[in-house]
Amino acid sequence: MLRAMLRHAPASRADVARLTGLSRPTVSEVVRDLLEEHVIVEADASKGVGPGRPGTHLAFHPSGAQVIIVDLSDPRHLDAALSTPGGNVLHRHRRAWGHGGSRPADVIEMIGEVEGQAGGNLVAIVIAASSHAEVVEEVRRAVRVPVHVFDPADLAADIEYLLGERGGGSLVLIQAGADVAVAVRECDAAGVLLERPAGAGRLSSSTWSLEELAPSLAVLATALGVPQVIVSGEHARRLAGMMRSAVRSPHVRVSVSDLDDSVARAAALAVALRPEQ
């Protein structure tokens, strides 16, 4: 339900039922819980044009529910942000990994520093990591809120699907950072996600250069039959340029992600991806 609200808020209960396919009683029950958790609020009544009582808009609480995301994908820096479901960034923090120290301790200390800036209800911590299993387990033991873990490329693909200008359509997401990862989101004709694959495919850029990877990635993107190829990450513009030259199909469009605040948007998305919702 929160996924639908991310794309369509403010929305009435009837709108949410229509967008999600949930029954009215189910929507009312979930809305009640989210209102109590201060994740959403009731806004001004909608302007109904027909008979009957106009519906009430539901919107994300501007500061009530807060999420911390910690991005472990950069081997040099540890990034974190405090955000609300609507994408409002309340605090941002970056620090170098400790030299010779404990990585779990570094992450837990940083979470504590960011949590100290939280002025509302902290509802989740999301960790963007393709490995670091020992870090995740230590964090789960140390904090009092749910911890969600996503592959960074999978998280970026979800963000593009839900919040990007091309959101809601099939796409291949290629994240070009310390390594290169590929995640696919495929939709039906109505823009409904068919399946959310678990785990992005990863290629080590220390073994292969971007120049060597670009032709193979172009062939892969064409073979997948998905028209949108979106490249994000530190080397996005460079890799996208090389892929455009390598793509042979006129039906495949390669572009650079237009979401320039992926850490904060991922934090907002973490709430929408809570399994119980």
Rank of each mutant, 00 (worst) to 15 (best):
Q175M: 06
G21H: 10
R7G: 03
S257G: 00
V39I: 15
P215L: 09
R18S: 13
L2D: 04
E212I: 01
G119R: 15
S255R: 01
F150R: 09
A266L: 05
P62E: 12
L162I: 05
E234C: 03
E186H: 05
Y161W: 10
V149S: 11
A183W: 00
A96M: 14
V263R: 11
S206I: 07
G86N: 06
R13D: 13
P85V: 02
G64R: 11
A105M: 07
D188E: 12
R244P: 12
V184D: 03
G21I: 04
E137S: 13
R144H: 14
V70T: 08
A157N: 07
E195G: 02
V149P: 10
V139K: 03
Q175F: 02
S209D: 09
P215H: 11
N88G: 10
E211Q: 13
G86W: 00
G233S: 02
S255I: 01
A246N: 12
R144N: 10
T222S: 14
A270D: 05
F60A: 03
T84N: 06
M243C: 07
V41A: 10
H235C: 04
R185W: 02
R141P: 10
G98R: 14
I111N: 05
S206V: 06
R92C: 01
L58C: 09
R185S: 01
P75Y: 11
A270I: 01
E165N: 02
I174V: 14
A118S: 14
L217Q: 04
I159S: 00
G52I: 03
V226M: 10
H235W: 08
E160R: 00
A264F: 08
V271M: 10
S130C: 08
V41T: 09
A11M: 14
A133F: 07
S73R: 01
E115W: 08
R24V: 11
A124P: 01
G52T: 04
S232R: 00
A4H: 07
M110T: 11
A236D: 01
G167S: 01
L163V: 00
A142N: 06
A65M: 07
A176V: 08
P227Y: 07
L173Y: 04
H57N: 15
A214C: 06
R248P: 07
A45F: 10
V136P: 05
E134Y: 10
V114T: 04
R237G: 02
L210W: 09
D154N: 12
V149Y: 09
A11C: 14
G101F: 09
V49D: 15
S206F: 15
V172Q: 05
H57V: 11
P250E: 15
V263M: 10
G116Y: 05
E211G: 03
V89M: 13
H93N: 11
P250L: 12
Q117N: 14
A198K: 13
R94E: 15
F150C: 05
T20A: 09
V30R: 15
L194A: 09
L72C: 06
V27T: 09
G177L: 03
G199E: 13
A267F: 06
L193T: 01
L217T: 01
Q66V: 07
I40E: 12
A221T: 00
V172S: 05
P215C: 12
L78E: 15
L34R: 15
